[in-house]
Simulated assay, not measured.
Amino acid sequence: MALPLHGDCEYGWRRCKCLIPASKVEQFNCRSSYDDCKKAADWLLYRTKQRPKVAIICGSGLGGLAELIDDKTIFPYEDIPGFPTSTVAGHAGQLVFGTLQGQECVCMQGRFHFYEGYSMETVTFPVRVFSLLGVETLIVTNAAGGLNASYRVGDIMVIKDHINLPGFSGQSPLVGHNDDRFGVRFPCMSDAYDRNLRALAIEAAHEQKCGSFLQEGVYCMVAGPTYETIAESNLLKKLGADAVGMSTVPEVVVARHCGLRVLGLSLITNKVVTDYDSNEKANHEEVLATTSLRAQDLQRLVRHLITKI
């Protein structure tokens, strides 16, 4: 017998109110509309004189980037129409407008994750808002586990490409109705990470004496929140991944869909366990501890990079 389905929306998503708890229904709603994103953008534009061309998304423990911003105007996420709230340690949960090295910027001090129970559309809602604010360049940072044997804890990896494992199973923020006001139905991802921005980042790193711990490689996103098994880690290495994490890719996909240039930076906070004889275990406390040791170097790199964009 067919199960009763209710709540069809114009984009074809369906949800069963009979089977899904009310607290979880939000995850199954259709994507945020253009009007929802514009409402949030207009709300912000009305309350700040800043007109940023650069947006920065801070990963776990990297919210200190926002502290470098001058002439700050701060908006807690819960005050912004349509914004969810971050629930993960190391993510402050506020949007910071201001200037960095004379460049008008907006900084997300804390991001949202699929593993928190949010849909991919909700995770990427801020990026669409950024595009409507007039942002042209997105810098995304994250804490990641190192898969490449030559990587060391504390390395900074410039992301040259990604592997979108959730996307392989249909968990993409672009699934469903496409609004042409944001971007085309089938966006290209072969140039997801801007070549010129990557070159500028590498140049800036050497100028800031960060070259000795700089890498360039492929980032793989997994859904989380569990860390990878040894078999999974070895599989990711065979797929060509140099680092692995639980974020970033959905924001990059939506940023490129909206026509933004993207630069991605991963801070390698732990070595991924790939040996069954190892007694090492990944944990979030280690991630935050390593981040605090290298955060100033990453902040220095981003601050100098801004002058080149």
Rank of each mutant, 00 (worst) to 15 (best):
P84N: 11
V123P: 10
G146V: 05
G245H: 02
E216L: 00
T307Y: 06
L147I: 07
M120R: 09
T269V: 03
L197Q: 09
I56E: 03
K49R: 05
V153Q: 11
E121K: 00
N279Y: 09
K39A: 14
S278N: 11
L65G: 13
P166Q: 12
S212K: 03
V244P: 10
S278Y: 10
H206F: 14
G259M: 02
W13N: 14
S33I: 03
S32L: 14
T290A: 15
I69S: 02
C220G: 13
D277M: 06
S266V: 08
M246S: 06
G102A: 01
I69P: 11
G63N: 08
T122L: 01
D8C: 01
K281N: 14
I57Y: 10
H257Q: 14
F130N: 02
N29F: 15
Y46E: 14
S32Q: 14
T290S: 08
K271C: 15
L68V: 00
E78C: 07
S233W: 12
Q109C: 01
P52F: 07
D79C: 07
P250I: 02
L301M: 00
D242K: 02
E203P: 01
H6T: 15
T73S: 14
V140N: 08
V262Q: 00
I268A: 08
S169C: 13
L267T: 05
G211S: 06
K209S: 11
L214M: 14
M108Q: 12
L239F: 13
Y77V: 10
V88N: 01
M157W: 07
D36H: 06
Q299C: 03
N196S: 13
M189T: 03
Q171C: 11
D70Y: 03
M120L: 14
T87I: 05
F182R: 08
M157F: 04
V129I: 12
K49D: 15
R111S: 02
K308I: 05
L301F: 11
G7P: 05
A40G: 09
T87H: 08
A2H: 15
S292Q: 09
N270T: 09
C210K: 00
N148C: 00
S212N: 10
A289I: 00
Q50C: 07
V88I: 14
V54A: 04
V129S: 08
L95H: 08
A243C: 10
C107V: 08
Y276V: 12
D194T: 05
I139S: 11
I202Y: 12
C188Y: 10
